[in-house]
């Protein structure tokens, strides 16, 4: 029921308002004395060197792809788990096959070194 989600929408608005009030309040009460050195990005006291928005290691992207793959597979467990008692033996065997197929991919990634960070 869409109306069930009305309180959640209201909650989002209230949280946003709370954060806004906190930030505005701190803006009013806090001092504002910017200097050039203060506004530089922190680099342990050294002069900042280049921009931080550069390319990042491929490892992070690999992790993201793995997450998407596995999360999508795992979401299939949810309806199955709710209906498990009604599905009976059929459900058990079918999920066994599903996990088997999942395991093939899992072992493949493991052997290819997809889970190794270095």
């Amino acid at each position: 029921m869409p109306i069930d989600f009305l309180p959640i929408l209201v909650m989002i608005a209230v949280v946003a308002a709370f954060a806004a009030i906190a930030l505005i309040l701190s803006g009013l009460t806090g001092p504002r004395r910017p200097t050039r050195a203060k506004l530089e990005p922190y680099e342990s006291g050294m002069p900042p060197f280049g921009s931080a928005m550069r390319r990042v290691s491929i490892k992070y992207f690999l992790t993201a792809v793995l997450f998407i793959l596995f999360d999508i597979e795992i979401i299939f467990f949810y309806p199955w788990a709710v209906l498990f008692r009604q599905l009976g033996l059929f459900g058990l065997i079918e999920m066994g096959i599903f996990i088997l197929i999942l395991l093939v991919g899992y072992v493949y990634i493991w052997r290819k070194g997809g889970f190794d960070w270095d």
Partner: peptide
């Protein structure tokens, strides 16, 4: 915390930072 200065670095992405 409320009475501390809010420092936003010059080349930060202001909106995302906020």
């Amino acid at each position: 915390m409320l009475i501390k200065e809010d420092i936003v670095p010059t080349n930060a992405d202001k909106l995302v930072h906020l």
